[in-house]
Design a protein around this nucleic acid. Structure first.
Lengths: 221, 221
DNA sequence: CTCTTTTAGATTTTCGAAAATCTAAGCTAT
DNA sequence: ATAGCTTAGATTTTCGAAAATCTAAAAGAG
């Protein structure tokens, strides 16, 4: 599908990015089997780098591996989502309180820019771009140099629900609600008001969990 | 080194186990480069499964990867250890409080057995066995079926400091201290006394962090 | 003498094919 | 019919070697 050429980055990294895209785009759906040779052919590479990329996704919880049987896109239940979001609440509160005082004007501006990108992408209906901008928005206010391990865990939690988040982003009603929520969060960041920030983040997350859970239950076979 | 044969489990899994052992045993030390072909030759396999195993360790934070440059055993600083242990405190308290009421007599007996194994291994000076038993001890009281994602994160945090924990376990003074600490923890589990349990776990962890930090600072170049 | 360029050796990375294993359909015996 | 066995095709897994890249020492220019 993509033009094969030795650029910066290894073939395995390209395969990883491609797999992520396919998962977000819904080309690879939860529960589905991942045929290695098919993936390799699509990218015009051999199976070795594809397998390495799958190992990474396995560790992130995005695919499940059964030896000699293959890789499958992870299927999450409502209970999994609840647990993951509860963990995010704990870890993100810690990260936000720690990072908030260290944010300079430049950092705040980057967060604001991400919020704008997110709203624009939502307007265009570009789910992939919206997901990327949304991540920049949230991580922009959590990241701090002395919290690398905390961020590693938070990133893991985000990754493991990425395929489901794409569902959430397709509802037009939620789209405008998200924009408003982001504005409230950004305002709290600007004021360096940690308690309000945490409260707004909690509300934002709860809402997402609610919608996701409903989508999931309606989807159950 | 090991006899090569197609048993249960894939070659990549064997390579992963072997790498873990080598890291715990100190054959691969923090900062050191990991030469893929050398590892492959030692296990009598080709590089492909070794690379897959390294990808797993990379995601666990045990090795660092620089494209086209190779894999290196992760080096941690005192600040990393402090952050990781702080995260463990938060996550393990949650897990312990949730799991404690669900432990049946059978589970408690397994935990007690792990404590005995741990003490015996310490007596013999078998660090690898002590590490394994210690893990069974701690995870035995945290594991519960509705906390799989929490456990995934906790396991990750444990993995990323495994190579340093081996250092801690070599001090004979700490060995007896650990045994006593385990007894206090086990007693709290038996009484289903959550507050005491959490307090004892915190103390246990603090002590480990203290010793590790001292070892690390003394070791600094 | 210092800095850049060249080059040889070491190492990683990827490939294409062979080997091992699994899946499921067809067959046989009860 | 049903349960167990057999076999063909599909898929994963591993290998050995070729290709690409990096490292560091040697050579050459200023």
């Amino acid at each position: 599908m993509s033009t094969r050429q030795t650029g910066p980055g290894t073939t395995a990294q390209h395969a990883l990015e491609g797999l992520r895209r396919a998962i977000i785009a819904g080309e690879l759906r939860p529960g589905q089997r991942v045929r290695q040779e098919e993936i390799a052919d699509n990218f015009g590479v051999s199976v070795a780098p594809v397998r390495e990329a799958l190992r990474v996704l396995e560790q992130e919880g995005q695919v499940e591996y059964r030896p000699r049987r293959g890789y499958f896109i992870t299927e999450l239940w409502a209970s999994d989502l609840a647990e993951i979001y509860a963990l995010r609440q704990v870890l993100e509160e810690r990260a936000a309180r720690k990072a908030l005082p260290t944010l300079d004007d430049d950092a705040v501006e980057r967060i604001a820019a991400a919020a704008r990108d997110c709203a624009e992408a939502a307007e265009r209906g570009d789910v992939a771009a919206e997901l990327a901008a949304n991540r920049r928005f949230h991580f922009g206010m959590l990241e701090s140099p002395d919290q690398v391990h905390t961020m590693r865990l938070i990133r893991l939690l985000w990754d493991s629900t990425e395929s489901y988040r794409a569902l959430y982003y397709n509802s037009p009603e939620e789209r405008t609600r998200t924009v408003h929520s982001h504005e409230a969060i950004l305002e709290a960041v600007r004021r360096r008001d940690a308690d309000t920030l945490v409260a707004e983040l909690d509300a934002h997350r709860s809402r997402a969990l609610d919608v996701l859970t409903r989508v999931l239950d309606g989807d159950a076979e």
